[in-house]
Design a protein around this nucleic acid. Structure first.
Lengths: 303, 303
DNA sequence: GATAAGTATTAGATAGTCTTATAATCTGGC
DNA sequence: GCCAGATTATAAGACTATCTAATACTTATC
């Protein structure tokens, strides 16, 4: 049963004419005649009494006409409704970020994005790294922002920047006043590390190993904030992205010293599903993030 | 847009599976896949996210699903509704009759019909003869019952009976006590006639002319009841169907005397549209009327 | 990384619908 | 009662859309 046939029927009844109803639907009179016959056959009821001219709508035909009008109206409403849902969804960017990037960096860019595109909506959610990947893969987030974005054939990666790593310790630590910390300085240090499951932990471990450094790992945490708290209570030292300890450095809550290990840097990137076509809104958001990270000095100056 | 496609979509969503949805609609999985793609293309919206297994319904798809459910429900309701209307219409006989036949004769047969077919409905309407024809031609009545049913290619005629005509006068009239009235007796009589437009008037005029009788027509009415009232107040005499003055004759309100004009009789018949196929209910009603008039004595005995 | 289950794609067959041309039907006027 | 004009029905063929079957591809799970 074609909805177009029902529309044709309604127009035929409304105009009290096959020809005019057909014309309104841009089909021939013959098509209208055949369609009405098929409709009546389908329903097993005479809808129109054609022995009179102009034809007379039977009681069944009248009941059907009113039902059809409602039906077609519902159909138009349904189409309008999904268009509205689409507009809302298309105007939304769902962002999943790891805490250390999301809280400081992304939220600032979200503000810029929303002032540039006021009709857009952004949903920012901060999650553990694994959850960020999961959210993107499951389609719960349009983009994910994280360090060490994982290779995955279902995911596309947009590199954003490489974050310099620094030595971080309590202000009273013996290395706190150094201009630079050499790998050897870390030998035997009480160390607050990332959880073993995290990629950044493996990267740091590998770098230390390459410089024949052995640290004494006393604690493991899955996020930077907790590691910082541990260092503040003098539980140990650590190696963290410089950006993430800038505010603590300026308030002297923590001591931050450059590391002479040059090949240790935390890549930060953006991930999204490779298959899923990006909406214009999501594309614009990604472009904004890329632009912002290509001019790090100017962005830093603004902060 | 096929309603079947919408049903298929709903089943696919409900089962969270193309294959099972297809099976429920007795089509191949391929057909379901193609139909869903066409549906999405038509709407310009992704309804299902197939990159996950089982697929995930998008927000648009969810909105559409709910709209479709309502739509299909309305469709089923519409079909049920016209079926109900059809049942009601098919079980109804709309009868249009002239007053002189409807009030006495038809209403009695209607009672018999309704006791024979309790689920049937009869709508009896008494009208002027011309209006009876019009009602049947216009399809407002299924059958018409009248005297002198007119020849008309759109109408089928079922003869019911031929009614004997009698002389009717006031009980004090000079002819009231006669056993029989001869044509010549009517010469110069003050006559209450039918309206000139009625066929029965023409028939009576012709019969009188053939017997070289000239009456003095003083009044004309379009119905028998009024003519009877005129005779009661001694305004004149008339010639009326015997059946229609039986009660007045038995109460001596009117005098009824047989007429010796043998070729004057009022044919009563039933008309219905030739093209329109009769419903079983209408056919049964017609059959009952025919049977009742083929056995006039038994019917009279029952009254 | 292999296997199983589910979905997409392709090509050809089939069924429906459309158009044009023509026939049938109805209405109203003479 | 019949004819002209208008309207609807029918017939035949072209075209479109949908279906099936076979097969390729994707996803999930072990």
């Amino acid at each position: 049963m074609h909805l177009e046939t029902l529309r044709l029927y309604c127009d035929v009844v409304r105009h009290r004419s096959f020809s005019r109803g057909a014309a309104q639907n841009v089909v021939s009179q013959s098509a209208a005649s055949q369609a009405m016959q098929q409709l009546e056959a389908e329903l097993g009821v005479a809808l129109l009494d054609r022995t009179k001219r102009p034809f007379v709508v039977t009681p069944e035909g009248q009941a059907f006409y009113e039902a059809c009008r409602g039906l077609l109206e519902s159909w138009e409403k349904a189409k309008a409704e999904i268009a509205a849902v689409k507009a809302r969804v298309d105007g939304t960017v769902r962002v999943a970020a790891i805490y250390s990037v999301g809280l400081h960096d992304v939220s600032r860019n979200v503000q810029r994005f929303m002032s540039l595109y006021p009709e857009a909506r952004v949903q920012l959610e901060c999650l553990h790294p694994h959850k960020v990947v999961e959210a993107v893969v499951q389609g719960e987030a349009d983009v994910g922002i994280m360090s060490y974005p994982p290779a995955d054939r279902t995911l596309a990666i947009v590199p954003l920047r490489s974050e310099q790593m620094a030595f971080v310790c309590h202000p009273n630590h013996r290395l706190a006043r150094r201009r630079v910390v050499m790998p050897a300085d870390l030998n035997g240090e009480t160390f607050v590390a990332f959880d073993a499951g995290l990629t950044i932990r493996k990267a740091i471990d590998r770098a230390l190993r390459q410089h024949n450094v052995k640290v004494n790992t006393v604690m493991e945490f899955d996020n930077i904030e907790t590691i910082k708290q541990a260092i503040i209570i003098a539980a140990g030292v650590s190696i963290l992205p410089r950006r993430t300890v800038q505010s603590e450095a300026s308030t002297r809550t923590l001591a931050v010293v450059p590391l002479s290990i040059t090949d240790l840097a935390r890549p930060v990137g953006l991930i999204h599903r490779r298959q899923k076509p990006l909406t214009p809104t999501v594309s614009r958001f990604i472009q904004l993030l890329k632009d912002a990270n290509e001019e790090p000095i100017r962005v830093a100056a603004r902060s």
